[in-house]
Design a binder for these strands. Sequence first.
DNA 1: CTCGTATTTGAATCTCGCTTCAACTAGCTT
DNA 2: AAGCTAGTTGAAGCGAGATTCAAATACGAG
Lengths: 205, 205
Amino acid sequence: MTQRKSKADRRLDLIDAAHRAMLQHGAEGVHLNQIAEEAGLTSGAVLYHYPDLRELLIEAQHAGMERFYERRMKKISGISDPADKLVVTIRSGLPDGPDDAGVRLLCELGGAAGRNRVYATLLTTLFDRQVSMYQTILETGAAHGVFTLAQDSETIARNLVALEDAYGYRIIARHHSIDPDKAVELILDYARLATGNPLRPADRR
Amino acid sequence: MTQRKSKADRRLDLIDAAHRAMLQHGAEGVHLNQIAEEAGLTSGAVLYHYPDLRELLIEAQHAGMERFYERRMKKISGISDPADKLVVTIRSGLPDGPDDAGVRLLCELGGAAGRNRVYATLLTTLFDRQVSMYQTILETGAAHGVFTLAQDSETIARNLVALEDAYGYRIIARHHSIDPDKAVELILDYARLATGNPLRPADRR
DNA sequence: CTCGTATTTGAATCTCGCTTCAACTAGCTT
DNA sequence: AAGCTAGTTGAAGCGAGATTCAAATACGAG
């Protein structure tokens, strides 16, 4: 028998297992047994902890989203120069490559959101949080005189997040000429117009 | 018995039925019986025409994509002024609302593309075609002196398509403050910076 | 009008995943 | 070390959907 665990620990394992299973089989196409297998358990054990599988899936999506957001915040937390900060933020919103797990999962959700209100809400909330994040950077830069905003900060922030999202999809779909570096360049091209700052792409981060 | 049809006619019916069924149940979650019902046939008849269901689904996606693109081209075909043309093109790339069938289906595909090469290729191709479409408009406008491009046309075109895509997802997910009109405004805000043209939003089209 | 064939049906069968639950056991408590 | 409890298993039963196929039938050709 697999090693026994406390309820709380096992639930964390299961959220992780569900995360992995969804990546392989789709957010909606994933099966109970696939999750059980990822967790090294039987289907019965999974049901013991999550009688309603949908609940587990939602928690897994939520956790993935949270992790994605936290990782970004952490990456940019140490940077004080607004221009550097903006560049790094843009990079951190893009997948590392076509197999980036975090972003893959977010993309999965995009389609499902049209049919599933919970997923729609999750994505919408994430979008808005990212917009706020960018807005703060933009406003700070403007206050320091580093940025001269060509539009109001909400507009720029929304467009930046939108560009990030869209190029994320392109990268996941393996577009032949749009890789993470290229995507950063494209988004920076907009950011330069909007902030009036030459924004040098940070060398690797 | 349902009226009989030639092989070719029936296949067209089935593609249409599959299209409708996918909208209701998801591109990947759709079932054979649901397609059969949409077509007014039994599952056996569907399999007679498409022994491999995946093939039907791919053809249906392909057809949906083609229809989406053709509709756009038709809407903008009569317009000669580049500025008007650009505005109408932007609008035509967005869903009418959260229930817009064509765009819903495209969004479905986004997530699946990470796991399915065929879908990835379809989406990538569509993206590139849309980029070309915008590039032509931009270049024409520049040649007429109506636009003063702040960046090369490919960069602008890619960013425009990306913005369209991303706001399409937001609209489908029922973002509370981003509806089609708002999305047009946001995209136009970028387009103005990039083209140096004041681009009035066309009143309803 | 009749034959021949392509299309469609409907029922039988198969498959697979979900659900349930009694039995088992690891690890804590006292 | 004996008992208790919570976590886990494995097997049985169920149901939904896919698949198969012989029989039925619509339609065109001759």
